[in-house]
Design a binder for these strands. Structure first.
Length: 989
RNA sequence: GGACGCGUAGCUCAGUUGGUUAGAGCGUCACAUUGACAUUGUGAAGGUCAGAGGUUCAACUCCUCUCGCGUCCACCA
């Protein structure tokens, strides 16, 4: 008895999972280079090309903390595919990694800083980034643990990070290539600006929310216009009307002088078909600087751009007397002034869509700004635009999207794609690989009131914000109000201190103060929203001021380079400054499938695993990510990034609500669920009962159900291993002895065929359903019961067990591997790399006969239930002579609890072509029996109680049948009806 | 405004080329129970497949419309 350990009565995932993952990890089989099947083929002299590969790049989780339940779904799907292909002998790679998620991560760290009352500017770029890196390191660690807890068979030796050294290089190479191909340009554009994040946002990072507002009708020269944002009208330079609008036709082409409560503007009137004549008055004041639509008009009709709102969300000097006010105050003040001037015709209530930042929910301010863009319409060196390349990859069926309906959504999005703004004004991320000859980018602003003091020789300035200068930097001094450069300075000294420690009487500063309060008040003017105390960090910059443009300031050449350039190739100047902006995080993620494989180097991995086989992710990032990966791969590599896109649905709560991390009520923590029910159960609950692209609801009870199944599988194995004499691993297909043997093997083959087909065809739920049906309904409920009657089935039991463990492994890797290790330990092999079974076609179909027997048993059980015949009572039946019945009498007798004897008179029951007679006398006997024994009622409650007391020697009396079949009243007719019903039901089984 | 999806048993959902009798899990009800498993077993009840019309020998499945719910995209001053 050396062959096996005893399996515990119930499966306890907690004791198993970590241990099993260790076992896998130590085997190195996660790494496709080390797979035995691959090695075997290579050894057999199969050329490299003939070895099939299968690869998936893990959609990199954001390093913003920990994984949520949505990640579990993604991991379950991918791990199934990966394990399936690995067992099929493919060279299978699942490459892990994480995304630096620039804005999200920076925000997370800033939120933490805020708890300490600090901002990132208090730390400065370098220190802040160090803090971010600490945070990221912790996140990565947590996430790795979570990935492992789910059982994800990832090749850790290839783990990547979007902000890692290697991938950063890929990003710079991609950027340079696109720049050289003139696909990346720097331009002034109206962009979505978040005044809180102090950064631009891509179009799809903007969210909309309905908001109740007002629609102001303003007298505007000779016409009246309607607007929801009067304050922007201060920056109007155009008036748009519909060309067919008779009311305004004669104005088109004219230039109007408009007086808005004393603020004078000049506007050019133009006609455009995009104007809706029905809305408002049909005339629109056009503000090119603060509306995307208006900006497009400005390009088309050649309008001047006047910026009246700045990056802080405050009115600029161009807004005249409203300068310095925040937008809402300015709106109020200006509309009051218009009212006084009699220029408000009316104000209506109006619901409009407010644009919000998707990270912080701050209202977006469209602003003109210099940004980097990817041109999606320009022809590339491939002769087609990026848009075309990416569309064609899907249109030509090279890339298949599952479910197919999303293909349409994809095209729609592609067709409407506009140039992609890729620069972000945040610190965490890939700094744009662009250097300017000279110090153009470094600026320091001074309030216009203090500018004259600089000319008088002041050499110090106090700042709360770290400008990121180094000693020796040449800095352009800018008038903050006019935004004009008025001179230059060299940074002579940088002193970090606190507000309270600043020398109030320092004559080198432009102003002196008597008290700290005065100084704080001065700071407050520039930072009205900040809490400033004497302990607040401050920086004293000492500079040397001059009016001259420094002659070493360079030629202004723009240098785009993969590596940091030493000097300007144009003028040989070595004072170069890098663009301080960083790249949109999606820029690096869009390279994910190939940057992780070594691109731009032509590595073996790239050759072997790209295009990847499947991109599996939630449909919510089809646009954000999938589309961009297709763009980048088709352009940079000239090949698609993946063959298939499989989109799973979103994970929702029991009530169908979106899970939100912030709301613990609705969110289900995957680690908590794994702890309680095991990773296998969690995986099943994500996969079974859903289909591609459809949302899935996850809740405790559901996972619990699958935990029960996992335990069933465990107990099936336990039973088989204890029932057989020698649980040796069967090498060849076992010999069939009985009808049931034939049947179970046929069903098994059918199951292998279906499961294989369904997994390969991305129908995971159906594969799982079929497996569950076979395992529970066929194997456990029928075959194992028969095995208790017919003995000597060791070979078949082990053979079937072995097969179902293999088939189940991709779905529930932990429990199957644990059973495998216990049962077949002498093999000293991992189930994880056990070859997937081939379907063996067997056309005998003898299993059909077994189904007839099943029907007989079911019909008899039905009959018993209809008559409330307790299981303890054996009823007599007689059957017409039939070889099938004769052969399987024993099974029928045991499972239906009948005995075969001659019955002359009784009810005839026809099941299929088999006839039975059941004597009415049986019913009478039952009644008698019941009366004779008295039958104390045995309730469920008492049964449980007795179990607890472990009164194992007691026999329990039967509970009396609730309803007595009354001989008098039970007419033959009624009985026949029941039998008819049963017969009908069973005819087709 | 545009596009897409959903509506099937009390609940959650499967149902891929239209084909005999529409399935599962959970829940409910009845019965059972010490030996693989109460995280169990044996049975039962429960559906005019949202509604109407059409195509067809045949429609949950294809087409049209209506109603209800949801998602995405665009955004109009």
């Amino acid at each position: 008895m050396t062959y096996m350990k005893e399996l515990p009565k119930t499966y306890n995932p907690k004791l198993v999972e970590d241990k099993i993952y260790q076992l896998w990890e130590n085997s190195d089989y996660f790494n496709p280079d080390d797979l035995p099947a691959v090695a075997r083929r290579a050894k057999a002299g199969l050329p490299e090309k003939r070895i099939k590969t299968f690869s998936i790049s893990l959609p990199p989780p954001n390093v913003t903390g920990k994984l949520h339940i949505g990640h579990s779904a993604m991991l379950a799907y991918q791990d199934i595919m990966i394990r399936f292909h690995r067992m099929q002998g493919d060279k299978t790679l699942w490459l892990p990694g994480m995304d630096h998620a620039a804005i999200a991560t920076q925000n997370a760290v800033e939120r933490e800083l805020k708890k300490e009352g600090k901002t990132r500017h208090d730390l400065g770029r370098e220190k802040f980034l160090a803090k971010v890196n600490d945070f990221v390191a912790k996140s990565k660690d947590t996430i790795r643990k979570q990935l492992k807890a789910m059982g994800a068979s990832l090749d850790w030796s290839r783990e990547k990070f979007t902000l890692g050294e290697d991938l950063s290089r890929s990003v710079r190479v991609a950027f340079k290539r696109m720049y050289d191909d003139r696909l990346i340009y720097r331009g002034d554009r109206v962009v979505n600006w978040c005044p809180h994040c102090q950064s631009t946002l891509a179009d799809d990072e903007v969210e909309y929310q309905e908001e109740k507002g007002k629609l102001y009708y303003i007298k505007y020269g000779p016409v009246t216009i309607a607007t929801t944002r009067p304050e922007t009208k201060l920056g109007d330079t155009g008036l748009a009307v519909h060309p067919d609008d008779k009311r305004y036709q004669k104005l088109i082409g004219k230039k109007l002088d408009v007086d808005l409560a004393g603020h004078k503007i000049k506007v050019k009137v133009f006609g455009d078909r995009a104007v809706n004549m029905e809305f408002g008055t049909g005339a629109i004041g056009v503000t090119p600087a603060h509306s995307l639509q208006d900006y497009q008009w400005a390009q088309k009709h050649d309008l001047e751009i006047i910026k009246v709102i700045d990056e802080q969300g405050k009115m600029t000097k161009a807004a005249g007397k409203y300068a310095g006010l925040d937008v809402l105050t300015a709106r109020k003040r200006f509309s009051d002034d218009l009212e006084k001037a009699g220029q408000i015709e009316k104000i209506e209530d109006y619901t409009n869509n407010l644009s919000l930042c998707y990270r912080c929910n701050t209202p977006i301010e469209p602003l003109p700004s210099k940004q980097w863009f990817v041109d999606v319409n320009k022809k590339t060196s491939h002769g087609k635009s990026l848009k075309q390349l990416a569309s064609e990859a899907v249109r030509s069926d090279q890339i298949k999207i599952i479910p197919e309906r999303f293909t349409k959504t994809y095209f729609q999005w592609m067709d409407n794609l506009r140039d992609w703004c890729i620069s972000r004004q945040i610190w965490y991320g890939h700094q744009i690989p662009v250097w300017y000859c000279g110090n153009e980018q470094k600026k320091m602003g001074f309030h216009e009131k203090v500018v004259p003091q600089l000319y008088q020789g002041k050499t110090k300035t106090y700042r709360l914000r770290d400008h990121g200068f180094s000693v020796g930097d040449r800095v352009a001094f800018e008038n903050s109000q006019s935004e004009k450069i008025f001179g230059y300075g060299v940074i002579k000294n940088i002193e970090e201190t606190t507000v309270g420690q600043i020398d109030l009487q320092d004559k080198a500063h432009r102003s002196t103060y008597d008290t700290v309060e005065e100084l704080i008040a001065a700071f407050k003017k520039h930072h009205p929203d900040r809490k400033i105390t004497p302990k607040t960090k401050a920086i004293i910059y000492t500079y040397k001021f001059s009016l001259d443009k420094p002659n070493k300031n360079g030629c202004g050449e723009i240098i785009v380079s993969v590596n940091k350039p030493n000097k300007c190739p144009n003028c040989k100047n070595s004072t170069l400054s890098q663009d301080p902006d960083t790249l949109d995080t999606w820029f690096s993620s869009s390279l994910w499938t190939f940057s992780t494989l070594g691109w731009p180097k032509k590595t073996d991995d790239l050759k072997n695993y790209h295009p990847t086989s499947v991109m599996e992710t939630g449909y919510d990032i089809l646009f954000f990510w999938i589309a961009r990966m297709i763009i980048m791969s088709t352009y940079l590599l000239g090949e698609k990034p993946f063959d298939y896109v499989y989109l799973h649905g979103l994970v929702r709560t029991k009530e169908g609500k979106k899970m939100s991390k912030s709301d613990p009520e609705t969110s289900v923590d995957p680690l908590d669920m794994i702890e309680r029910f095991g990773a296998d159960a969690l995986r099943l609950s994500m996969i079974i009962g859903t289909s591609a692209g459809n949302d899935v609801r996850i809740y405790k009870e559901k996972i619990e159900g699958y935990r029960n199944f996992v335990n069933k599988l465990w107990n099936i194995s336990r039973f088989i291993l204890s029932a057989v004499k020698n649980p040796a691993y069967p090498k060849t297909a076992p010999r069939v002895k009985t009808l049931s043997d034939q049947w179970i093997l046929e069903e098994l083959e059918k199951t292998i065929e279906i499961v294989t087909k369904k997994i390969a065809g991305f129908e995971f739920s159906q594969a799982g359903e079929q497996l569950r049906y076979f395992t529970w309904d066929q194997l456990a409920d029928w075959y194992l019961e028969i095995a208790k009657i017919e003995k000597n089935k060791d070979d078949i039991l082990l053979w079937v067990l072995k097969r179902i463990l293999i088939l189940w492994h991709p779905f529930v890797p932990f429990v199957t591997e644990e059973i495998w290790q216990t049962a077949f330990a002498e093999e000293n092999k991992l189930l994880m790399v056990e070859p997937w079974p081939e379907v063996q076609k067997d056309q005998t179909k003898a299993g059909q006969d077994f189904k007839k027997i099943q029907n007989v048993i079911i019909a008899l059980r039905n009959f018993r239930a209809e008559y409330n015949i307790p299981p303890a009572t054996i009823i007599s039946i007689s059957a017409k002579k039939n070889p099938l019945i004769e052969k399987e009498k024993k099974i029928i007798a045991k499972l239906a609890r009948v005995k075969f004897s001659a019955v002359k008179k009784g009810i005839r029951l026809t099941i299929g072509q088999l006839d039975f007679t059941i004597p009415l006398g049986n019913l009478i006997d039952i009644e008698k029996e019941r009366k004779r024994t008295g039958l104390e009622l045995q309730t469920k409650k008492r049964y449980y109680e007795s179990l607890n007391k472990k009164l194992t020697n007691r026999y329990f009396l039967q509970k009396a049948p609730r309803e007595i079949v009354d001989r008098e009243k039970t007419k033959k007719k009624e009985l026949e009806e029941i039998i008819k019903k049963l017969t009908k039901k069973l005819k087709y089984l």
